[in-house]
Simulated scan of single mutants.
Amino acid sequence: MKYLENAVTVISGAASGIGAASSRRLAGAGARMVLGDIDEGGLKKLVADIDSAGGKAVYKVTDVTHLEDFESLVALAESTYGPVDVLVNNAGLMLFSYWEERAIADWDRMIDVNLRGYLHGIAAVLPSMLERKAGRILNIDSVAGHRAGEAGGVYAATKFFIQGMTESLRKEVGASHGIQVGMVSPGVIDTGWPYKVHDGRAKDVAIDLSRQAIKPEAVAEAVAFALNQPPSVAINEVIVTPVDQAW
Score class of each variant (00 low, 15 high):
172 E>R: 08
190 D>Q: 13
168 S>C: 10
102 R>S: 11
164 G>L: 10
79 S>R: 15
116 R>S: 12
100 E>C: 02
116 R>F: 15
147 R>T: 03
74 V>A: 06
175 A>L: 12
171 K>T: 10
179 I>C: 01
51 D>S: 15
111 I>T: 12
163 Q>G: 01
171 K>W: 07
79 S>K: 15
140 I>Q: 04
55 G>Q: 05
76 L>G: 11
173 V>L: 00
49 D>L: 14
157 A>M: 13
136 R>E: 13
131 E>P: 05
142 S>D: 08
90 N>D: 05
170 R>L: 08
126 L>Q: 01
60 K>W: 08
136 R>P: 03
144 A>F: 13
171 K>M: 13
110 M>S: 01
155 Y>S: 09
178 G>P: 13
76 L>V: 15
139 N>K: 00
120 H>N: 15
51 D>P: 04
55 G>V: 14
44 K>A: 14
163 Q>Y: 13
117 G>R: 03
115 L>S: 02
147 R>M: 00
109 R>W: 05
149 G>L: 14
128 S>M: 02
54 G>E: 04
134 A>C: 00
169 L>G: 07
91 A>I: 11
58 V>H: 09
84 V>E: 05
81 Y>W: 08
47 V>I: 09
60 K>E: 07
102 R>N: 00
100 E>D: 07
135 G>E: 01
185 S>P: 10
71 E>N: 10
139 N>Q: 09
87 L>A: 03
66 H>Q: 14
163 Q>V: 15
64 V>R: 05
118 Y>G: 01
171 K>S: 09
160 F>G: 00
43 L>K: 06
120 H>D: 06
128 S>I: 00
179 I>W: 03
52 S>V: 10
170 R>F: 06
178 G>A: 12
112 D>V: 10
81 Y>K: 13
135 G>Y: 04
168 S>N: 13
90 N>C: 07
150 E>R: 13
84 V>A: 08
190 D>S: 14
120 H>Q: 01
137 I>T: 02
136 R>L: 08
144 A>T: 08
103 A>N: 14
187 G>T: 09
177 H>P: 06
74 V>E: 01
88 V>C: 11
48 A>L: 13
161 F>M: 05
167 E>Y: 08
55 G>S: 14
91 A>N: 01
148 A>W: 07
174 G>A: 04
77 A>K: 04
52 S>Y: 03
154 V>K: 01
124 A>W: 05
131 E>A: 12
70 F>R: 03
83 P>G: 00
120 H>C: 13
139 N>E: 02
49 D>Y: 11
106 D>P: 07
121 G>K: 01
156 A>F: 09
